[in-house]
Amino acid sequence: MSEVTIYHNPACGTSRNTLAIIRHAGIEPTVIDYLKAPPTRALLRKLLADAGLSVRDVLRSKEPVYAELKLADAHWTDDELVDFIGQHPILLNRPIVVTPLGTMLCRPNSEVVLEILPVPVVAPFTKEDGQQVIDTGKRRAP
């Protein structure tokens, strides 16, 4: 089993670029298409805690279901919001990457994943839009 996991949506450019950067670094991650296999309530809570994020930090406010359910209303509890993500996984912002160096929501820029990759400096990488990513070699402490 890989020491790197990505909660991935193949329809998302940021998610595709993040996955490509991980692979460019020589790592074959465990790829979880969270739309087909959403994280359990407990796992989602753990991912959020490990990344230092709130439930609202990972809600996709641009999704039609967000407006339909009126999730911007402040009265929803975190537990209720987690339940909505479980029922409508498209509400989960992506990608979320887990490595031995940490857990991170890799938005809005896919290259932030470099901060938690357990490898030395990664060679320059070109994203789908032609933007080049240069790794500084800075990593989180484990």
Rank of each mutant, 00 (worst) to 15 (best):
I85Q: 01
L101N: 14
K36M: 07
V58G: 03
K138M: 10
Q132L: 09
H88T: 10
Q87C: 04
C12A: 10
E63D: 02
L71P: 07
L44M: 08
I134A: 11
D83P: 00
I6Q: 10
A141V: 09
T126Y: 03
K62G: 04
H88V: 12
R139S: 15
A74P: 08
G130H: 09
I85V: 14
R107C: 12
G102H: 05
H88E: 07
T99A: 15
E115W: 10
P39E: 11
V112W: 07
E3V: 04
K127P: 03
E63G: 01
A20H: 05
L19E: 01
P38K: 12
Q87D: 05
P29N: 04
Y7I: 02
V121G: 00
S110L: 13
R140V: 01
L101T: 13
N9M: 02
C106M: 06
K36I: 00
I116F: 03
G13I: 11
T40I: 05
A74H: 12
A123D: 14
R139L: 07
V4S: 07
L19V: 08
Q87P: 00
G13E: 10
A74L: 04
A141R: 06
V4L: 12
V119D: 13
K127A: 12
A123L: 14
E111R: 09
V55N: 11
G137K: 14
A123P: 05
G13T: 15
T103P: 03
H88I: 10
L71M: 11
P10Q: 06
L92F: 08
H8I: 02
V133H: 09
A51G: 03
L81E: 13
V121Q: 12
I21P: 13
V65L: 09
P118E: 01
P89A: 14
W76R: 11
V121R: 15
I27R: 03
N17F: 02
E3S: 10
A67Q: 14
K36H: 09
A141S: 13
V65W: 11
E128L: 05
G13V: 10
L91A: 11
I6N: 13
E111W: 03
L114K: 08
V122D: 07
R16D: 05
T18Y: 00
L69T: 00
D73V: 02
I134K: 09
T18H: 01
A72L: 10
T40D: 06
L44V: 02
P142Y: 08
A20D: 14
L91N: 11
N93K: 08
H24S: 04
E28M: 09
P10R: 08
P29I: 04
L114V: 10
K127Y: 00
S54E: 12
P29S: 06
Q87L: 14
E28N: 15
D129R: 14
E28H: 13
R41P: 00
